[in-house]
Amino acid sequence: MFNKLFPNVELQDMITATNETLYMTIISVLGTLFLGIILGLLLFLSRPGGLWENKFLNWVTAAFVNVFRAIPFIILILLLFPFTDFLMGTIRGPKAALPALIIGAAPFYGRLVEIALREVDKGVVEAAKSMGAKNSTIIFKVLLKESMPALVSGLTVTAIALIGYTAVAGVIGAGGLGDFAYFYGFQRSDFDVVFVCTVLIVLIVFIFQFIGDILTRSLDKR
């Protein structure tokens, strides 16, 4: 039945491609989380009236974020080739896609982090100050903790965008479902392969969204 409907689909290839997509997504989500939180904190803390008010730092961070968000992802990959080569020692395969994925997504997530932090009640920060809290305590125990649901739902949105990016990265030979759909499906005119790859990507997106929603809900005690 399956073979009749999808004559060109090899199960083993599909599993490999799915694993590559999952690998790229998960590692880049982790990288984006780390870099995005740092960018978001820098944006939030250095703004006027912030804990580390600093015009220069704020300008530099905002410029970095805005520039990298403005570059279309496909061009960013090409632009980063030398950097990727230097960092990873290769420009092909799932590993080589990671720098571009993270640098492409982190500024986006950074903005979401900034928005989430801005939503934290100023009064709570003031209360922590009145108790004699250090800035580091305010950052880790108040700001990040109180904005957790927004940080998680923001990360879910970013992760889903990243799944899309991994498919784009496939076009330059990063591996994964996008790569497979293009080279083994589209170019050979085996549209059943394209179809199965699409279904698998949609499935992955749904799973990420589902996990994100559950986490957000369980963290939100408001």
Partner: peptide, 30 residues
């Protein structure tokens, strides 16, 4: 010095992510 000056607020300013117990424990953690 602030640790020896308590303050309460019009809008309470509690951490919603913490339980009553953990809110009260916060200044002690600090």
């Amino acid at each position: 010095a602030r640790q020896e000056i308590g303050m309460i607020f019009q809008h309470f300013n509690l951490l919603w992510s913490r339980t009553v117990k953990d809110n009260i424990a916060f200044p002690l953690e600090i």
